[in-house]
Amino acid sequence: MSAVLNAPGAVSGTRPAVATGTPLLEIDNLHVSYGKTAALHGVTLSVQPGEVVALIGANGAGKSTTLRAISGLLKPTRGSIRFKGKDIGGMPADRVVGLGIAQSPEERHVWSAMTVYENLTLGAYLCKSREVVQQRVGMVYHRFPRLKERHQQLAGTLSGGEQQMLAIGRALMSEPELLLLDEPSLGLSPKMADEVFDVVREINAHGVTVLLVEQNVHNALSAASRAYVFETGRVVADRDAAGLLQDPELLSAYLGG
């Protein structure tokens, strides 16, 4: 991860290559419910090491539910979730983080009454070495200079874009192999959204696999190598991202254009 955060930025707009081989993440026939209400109906997908994979679809299609099931926030009712060959379905969230998965949640959920620095250190709560935690904070500040400028500022006083950078930086503090991003451009200006996706490309270009949920279809497909289209809790298409951008009929059918 030190290489990820210290390396120079990737070229804006660079699309990751489609990886092949043994998947880093495999989901098979995943069912998840909220109480008696079924949210996922047999979702199957995979993510290869080094990919950026996008989950796209209308609101309520099951994309965020899928991320929450991966990260241990929701327990599957059926099916399997395997990370590096290990079944993690229903595993507690702290153990999932310890295995190498971190999530930057929808709407960021920073601790508004705590400083930027305090938010970041909480992202490394599994690390027992204060020295290593400080090294990781320094690497996040290298990647996000605005966070360094505001390190003693309360997170609740940051702009939306700065809070998103803080949420991503907090997730990176656990040094994940797989980063789950839930709606990273939500509520941001187009310019700030472009900045956030440039950061996503840089992180991926230097070693972190990314699984991304995003309502802005163009941003998602421009950053991803592949995409899964969700509708009402099911995967209805699995396509190369570049090809999907050129398929207006599919986009219109499932995403409204």
Rank of each mutant, 00 (worst) to 15 (best):
L154C: 07
K128N: 14
Q153I: 10
Q153W: 08
I88W: 02
Q103R: 15
E131R: 10
N119D: 01
G98L: 14
V96W: 07
V132M: 12
L120F: 07
G138Q: 09
L154S: 04
A124R: 05
E107H: 10
R146D: 09
Q134I: 00
P92Y: 13
I101W: 06
F144M: 03
S159L: 06
S129I: 12
Q153E: 13
M91V: 08
H151K: 14
M139K: 08
E131W: 02
T157S: 14
P145A: 10
Y125N: 11
A155Y: 04
Q153V: 12
Q135L: 13
E106K: 11
E131C: 00
K148P: 00
L154F: 13
P92M: 12
Q135R: 14
K128R: 15
L126T: 11
F144K: 04
P92Q: 12
R108K: 08
E118F: 06
A93D: 12
T115M: 01
G160L: 05
R95F: 02
R150I: 09
H142M: 05
G160T: 06
Y125L: 11
L122Y: 11
L147C: 05
Q152W: 08
T115A: 02
V97P: 08
R95P: 00
F144D: 01
R136V: 04
Y117I: 03
G138Y: 05
V133S: 07
V137C: 04
Q134P: 00
E131P: 00
V110D: 00
E106Y: 09
M139F: 10
V97D: 06
A113G: 00
L158G: 01
R150V: 09
R136I: 06
P105H: 12
R108W: 01
Y141D: 02
V133M: 08
A124S: 11
R95A: 09
R136P: 03
A124Q: 06
S159R: 07
Q103H: 14
Y125F: 15
Q152C: 10
R95S: 08
N119V: 01
A124E: 01
Q103M: 15
Q103W: 02
P92L: 11
K148R: 13
V137E: 01
K128Q: 15
W111C: 11
L120Q: 04
S159P: 07
P145E: 06
A113W: 01
R108N: 03
R150Q: 14
K128Y: 07
G138P: 05
G156N: 09
Y141H: 13
G100K: 04
G123R: 07
G90N: 12
W111Q: 06
T121Y: 03
E118A: 14
L147Y: 02
L120D: 00
V133T: 10
G98M: 10
C127T: 12
A113R: 11
M114V: 05
R108E: 02
